[in-house]
Design a binder for these strands. Structure first.
Lengths: 205, 205
DNA sequence: GTCTATATGGCGATAGAC
DNA sequence: GTCTATCGCCATATAGAC
């Protein structure tokens, strides 16, 4: 019978945190056990080995991030509002998951089978069809130029993610303080949306 | 007297490669020694410890990447050609240094002192002033809109780097084969430049 | 299911010959 | 400067009591 304290869930939550902070090789089973408030031996009882625990952790984390990002793709309102909302959401998610996102992209390539499973389980066909359909509508109405939905989505995500990932470098390249960097990142929420809209909105005749 | 075989350089080259592939904790001194064709003890002779070797490796790699990226910022020719050339160069560099770039951004935050040293040694003031001056020129001539040089540069780098970093994920999200992904990445060289220019070029009156 | 105690192996680092 | 041999430590994993 399963324990009322839910040890498995506690271990998994601790493992995700520690693996993200230290990487697979840097993580210690003892640290995960301590953080879960459970003995090291129990980790092996629930998950056969460190690698087993890691694979489950990656699976849990990847699903969380991908679902979080996808869930913000709501095709409501005007195209302008839709894009402003998208940019805002991505900035929010990426700021919150900075470390996890880096871990995700670093480790992704080593565990492509897991990525296959996770992406397969997503309702991406409907989501992408929704977005693509939405852009097709706008193109027909003549409000936006002819752009592949994938390109537009990739551009938006890129411009939101990169400055957050690279902020320690950018801070130094442009001689900014931490505070100035925060102001800059916040200012970009508006800038990115403006930049995208300037590119895709057709000028009023 | 220094050895004619240049052991120190051979060790460093091997170390950069192994650290990039395995990370600090995953790297083994034995593997670095093997790859350099030198005994493990000699690693400790030249660099006091694993950490010492790592710091030198990070320094070498970071300088390489940053200089490589900066060296492509030539403010010649028309604004349109300048941007097309920038995008092409970045796509080239990032494709070649994919793994290293990921390593760079993952480890950057843990070694901020090293980043300080490296960025301080760069002639970035002149470079940035050059670029900023160039945009100021174009803005005065009325060819481009009013945009901060930093924003423009960040946007371009972001749109070049992200699809390369995220290609294993994008491939699956959009159900593409490896070949289709390569075609897509190549197509983006033109798309990104077009996208940027559409956003910043003022319409002809 | 959860613990303490222990087995087992591998890694960074050093000693010391050449 | 470069090597072989070895020390000392610590991490994963298991055994076995409760």
């Amino acid at each position: 019978m399963e324990n009322i304290s839910g040890s498995e869930a506690k271990i998994l939550a601790a493992a995700v945190e520690v693996f993200c902070r230290r990487g697979f090789d840097g993580a210690r089973m003892q640290e995960i056990a301590d953080q879960a408030g459970i003995s090291k031996a129990s980790l092996h009882y629930y998950f056969r080995s460190k690698e087993g625990l890691f694979k489950r952790s990656v699976q849990v984390l990847f699903s969380q991030i991908i679902n979080n990002v996808i869930s913000h793709l709501s095709p409501d309102s005007s195209i302008e509002e839709m894009i402003r909302q998208l940019v805002d959401s991505y900035y929010e998610v990426f700021s919150q998951y900075r470390r996890q996102a880096l871990f995700f992209f670093s480790e992704m390539i080593k565990y492509e089978e897991l990525l296959d499973e996770i992406v397969s389980a997503l309702p991406r066909q409907e989501i992408l069809a929704n977005i693509a359909g939405r852009f097709e509508q706008e193109r027909r109405k003549g409000t936006i130029v002819d752009i592949a939905p994938m390109d537009l989505l990739v551009n938006i995500i890129a411009m939101c993610l990169y400055p957050i990932i690279a902020s320690p470098l950018l801070k130094r390249m442009f001689s900014m303080t931490d505070e100035e960097m925060n102001v800059y990142l916040n200012h970009r929420k508006k800038h990115v949306a403006d930049f995208v809209l300037a590119s895709i909105l057709k000028v009023q005749p």
